[in-house]
């Protein structure tokens, strides 16, 4: 038996609105909205990498910055709340410059090849040319990156651009951590922490360019607090965290999103009733996600919902259905 006594006040939505101007257009949005929301109202898209509707904004990536009249620096659209009579410019010279540079800085230091198409779209749109910073230094820095000392660094090999290249961490059967693809958006840490799972298996460790996502003392996941809910994978924007099922298929070059269907159903386990989105390729489940906008668990699952579907497939194998995908 558990007793939870809630002491906090209900969040009552106010009816107040705020008027502002975005790219010369007048916008009225509810008080407390973000600039990004105001942009949406007038059909202006905002590029984002570290933003997720279910997580507290950290606005670390800075690709969403916009120009706000009266502000010395640009402001993050994903987190900055609207104020009366704000004047916002989303496509000024300064905005384009910062977005382009942020994308170049990321693309020159991180492997974005598994990032969704929209990220490549941003790079194209802002004419990002990451090669301007020199050829990537992809020498194997794995050991170095897990055990750096804050306040010290070894200078980049002259003529090269430092990267976060390192071999993927494969230490369990469920998912892979390939931090050479990590843009340090903090989303996995938030999902593992107070925003969803409250397991706190991972945190940002180290500092500066050497900051990285880590368990305590870089322990392998099976030795950590990880409960394999996969909620970190669900929010990872660049494929740094990836299901082993997907990773293996990508390695075998059998992963083909064009041939995949997505079907929403309900988890077969406990009574919470989480929605499972089954990604199916060739009549086999290849991964499971959950819609962020469903109010039962807002995209979060547990290990059983996320990974406990294989029995359906094992049964298919028993009855002699041909193995058509996967290497495992």
């Amino acid at each position: 038996m558990t007793v939870a006594a809630t002491t906090h006040r209900l969040h009552l939505k106010t009816n107040r609105t705020v008027d502002l101007t975005v790219d010369g257009q007048h916008v009225r949005v509810p008080e407390g909205s973000t600039i990004m929301k105001a942009c949406q109202e007038v059909g202006i898209g905002t590029p984002t990498l570290c933003y997720e509707q279910t997580l507290t904004p950290v606005n670390a990536c800075r690709v969403c910055v916009v120009e706000m009249e009266g502000s010395r620096a640009l402001v993050p659209a994903c987190a900055r709340k609207v104020e009366p009579d704000m004047v916002i410019w989303t496509d000024s010279e300064r905005v384009r410059h910062s977005r382009k540079l942020v994308l170049e800085l990321l693309a020159s230091s991180v492997d974005l090849s598994y990032a969704p198409d929209e990220v490549q779209g941003y790079l194209d749109h802002y004419d990002a040319r990451p090669e301007r910073f020199g050829p990537p230094d992809t020498s194997d820095g794995a050991v170095h990156r897990d055990h750096t000392q804050a306040g010290h660094h070894i200078p980049t090999t002259n003529g090269y651009a430092a990267t976060v290249a390192q071999p993927p961490k494969i230490d369990n059967e469920l998912y892979i951590r390939d931090y050479s693809r990590c843009i340090l958006c903090y989303k996995c840490v938030e999902a593992c922490g107070v925003d969803a799972q409250n397991t706190f298996a991972i945190a940002v460790a180290g500092r500066g360019f050497d900051a990285h996502i880590s368990t305590e003392f870089a322990a392998p996941l099976p030795d950590s607090a990880c409960v394999y809910c996969g909620n970190c994978i669900a929010v990872c924007p660049t494929g740094a965290l990836i299901f082993k099922s997907e990773y293996d298929m990508r390695q075998a070059e059998t992963w083909d999103e064009e041939r995949q269907t997505e079907t929403d159903t309900i988890c077969p386990y406990c009574g919470v009733g989480c929605t499972l989105r089954l990604h199916v390729q060739d009549n086999r489940i290849v991964k499971v996600t959950s819609p962020m906008d469903h109010d039962v668990t807002n995209g979060n699952l547990c290990i059983k919902g996320r990974f406990g579907w294989q029995f359906v497939q094992n049964r298919a194998r028993d009855t002699g259905v041909e193995e058509s995908v996967g290497t495992s």
Binding site: V58, N59, A60, C61, R62, V63, S98, L101, V102, L105, L106, S108, S109, F133, G134, A150, G151, H152, H153, P155, T156, N158, Y160, A161, A162, I183, L184, Y186, V204, G206, R207, G208, F209, D210, A211
Partner: peptide, 19 residues
């Protein structure tokens, strides 16, 4: 060395500047 590493412009920008 002293960039906290939180935001991209400073985390990577200070590296590219030094390079």
């Amino acid at each position: 060395d002293e960039s906290c590493g939180q935001c991209v412009p400073c985390r990577v920008g200070t590296v590219r500047q030094e390079e």
